[in-house]
Nucleic acid binder design. Structure first.
Length: 486
RNA sequence: GCUGCUAUAGUGUAGUCCGGCCAAUCAUGCGAGCCUCUCACGCUCGCGACUGGGGUUCGAAUCCCCAUAGCAGCACCA
């Protein structure tokens, strides 16, 4: 019976087979270090990870930092932290800015093979020619001339914008995006935070170089790279290299969330968001802070698979995955939002024992001592509630004198409460209740919680009748918790 | 504009390659009920989709054509 239950939650979502993967794969996750990882990155990272686990092989983390404009020096560490959080099976890491000599070397070889040339036309001019399917004057230069120009790029004879290495493709290709695309350009500012360089490879070149050098066999990436895949084929062909197997999945959005790193950064700088882990953001650190488990992210992403349709990722689906993981683990506590202090007439002092987890009695219980006055959720005290049951304690009747409620002990019988259809509500002894702020994506809810909650720092708990929350901070002024989901 | 990709319920997904077993799978969501000292968990039942139009065929979610919609690329970004 337990196995059946287990099997249900663990059922493996099977990803479609990859062709040519029978004898293992080499795959890579290649983020740009411009900020921390978000859900969109997680899709690429987890899909590749899953295939490496399925077929066996190597999983390379490749930091693609060949554009100094898009490098945030802090992002190197953030990316690594996020990957650690996701527990990806990375087997090796390479950083492109450390590999510039390799790319230069291959560029020279490609020029020698006649697969590339150094173009000194200005951009506008080249663009016009490209649109008109006309070769630019540099295209037919002899190899020796190209090699000379290439040296002059490297030795700073040329300045930024004055020379570009282009891959020879097919000028008659109906897609203008394919015609003689650039492979290297000169960049002097901003300086790269990690390396001194003058000439940088463009993504299409460095990616092919590395995929080949590292022995990458399969590439799974977003469909925004479909055109790049076609461009990259030209480079493979020039070198005579074997082309990896590609899969392109569709665009993914998330309801109500910005996934653009630059927009997130802008919002943070403007003060709209508190930081990269602001809970309104779709970064992995924001999810972590809210108590979303990395396995929930993985399962949700695997369930989406590698379809090429554009999708809108739903929080509901992520929450459902997370709840499966968190519900059996999270201890239960009372959190009283918007508390109302009530004196209960006619009740003797007594002690309530509330279970830490209803499905696991072995965990024991919390002890709540009733001494006359309690904090109740204001929202549950309305003119049309005649009776409520304080969970694990007793029943209380409410009577009203105008807008002033008064509360009276009404017996211990749970059956009576059920018969009266009384709500069973959470409560806290007025003495000793700890101030607690629950931060949600919509705003903050102030209230009080059990003292024991202070021992759950960093854990996800369930506030009964409210939802799951991660205890983010415990201080002299109380507890700060982040709402996870219902 | 040019080039290409895609289109199954509110959301995600299976089925599409090799047409019939699909009045369409699973999950999530929503509704009702059961269970329960939480509005959680669990259980039961229900709701809800093949973008539209043509064609091929005995038979189409599946093949073909057109339309429509969405997305991507056309950067000295990745």
């Amino acid at each position: 019976m337990y196995e059946a239950l287990f099997a249900k939650h663990e059922h493996r979502r099977v990803l479609p087979d990859l062709e040519g993967a029978e004898h293992g794969v080499v795959m890579r996750f290649a983020p740009n270090p411009s900020g921390p990882l978000h859900i969109g990155h997680a899709r690429a990272a987890v899909l590749n990870d899953a295939y490496v686990k399925q077929y066996g092989g190597r999983y390379i983390l490749r930091i693609e930092d060949t554009d100094p404009k898009r490098v945030d020096p802090e992002a190197y560490d953030m990316v690594k932290e996020d990957i650690a959080w996701l527990r990806l099976g990375i087997t090796e890491t390479v950083t492109q800015s450390e590999r510039l000599p390799l790319y230069y070397d291959l560029c020279r070889k490609l020029i020698e093979r006649g697969g590339a040339y150094v173009c000194i036309c200005n951009n506008e001019r080249f663009r016009e020619l490209k649109q008109a399917k006309i070769a630019c004057p540099c295209r037919d230069q002899p190899v020796e001339k190209n090699l000379g120009l290439w040296e002059r790029m490297l030795d700073h004879t040329f300045n930024e914008g004055e020379a570009t290495v282009r891959i020879k493709t097919d000028l008659n290709n109906p897609d203008p995006a394919m015609r003689d695309f650039p492979a290297f350009r000169i960049l002097d500012s901003p300086p790269h935070p990690r390396v001194i360089a003058h000439v940088y490879p463009l993504m299409n070149f460095s990616v092919v170089a590395d995929d080949h050098l590292l022995g990458v066999t399969h590439v799974i990436r977003g469909k925004d790279h479909i055109a790049n895949t076609r461009r990259q084929r030209y480079i493979y062909d020039h070198f005579g290299w074997k082309v990896p197997v590609y899969r392109h999945y569709g665009r993914m959005g998330i309801e109500g969330v910005v996934l653009s790193t630059s927009q997130m950064r802008f919002g943070i700088n403007e003060g709209k968001y508190s930081g990269w882990d602001d809970i309104r953001l779709g970064t992995l650190r924001a999810l972590a802070r809210r108590g979303i488990s990395p396995d929930a992210v993985k399962n949700a992403v695997l369930a989406i698979g590698i379809g090429d349709t554009d999708i809108s990722f739903s929080w509901d689906n992520l929450y459902a995955e997370n709840k499966k993981i968190v519900d059996p683990v999270a201890n239960r506590y009372f959190f009283v939002p918007d508390p109302f202090t009530a004196n209960i007439d006619g009740a003797l002092h007594r002690t309530a024992h509330a279970m830490l987890h209803p499905g696991d009695t072995a965990r024991g219980s919390r002890i709540l001592v009733f001494e006359g006055s309690v904090e109740l959720p204001r929202g549950d005290i309305t003119h049309d509630t005649a009776m409520v049951r304080l969970k694990d304690l007793f029943n209380v009747t409410i009577s009203w004198d105008g807008s002033i409620p008064s509360f009276a002990y009404a017996g211990d019988s749970l059956a009576e409460a059920r018969a009266a259809k009384a709500h069973i509500i959470q409560w806290l002894p007025a003495q000793g209740a700890v101030p607690c702020t629950l931060l949600t994506q919509e705003g903050e809810i102030t209230g009080v919680c059990e003292p024991l909650v202070t021992k759950e720092l960093g854990n996800v708990v369930q506030f009964e009748r409210v939802g799951f929350a991660r205890i983010d901070a415990v201080g002299n002024d109380g507890v700060t918790a982040y709402f996870t989901h219902k």
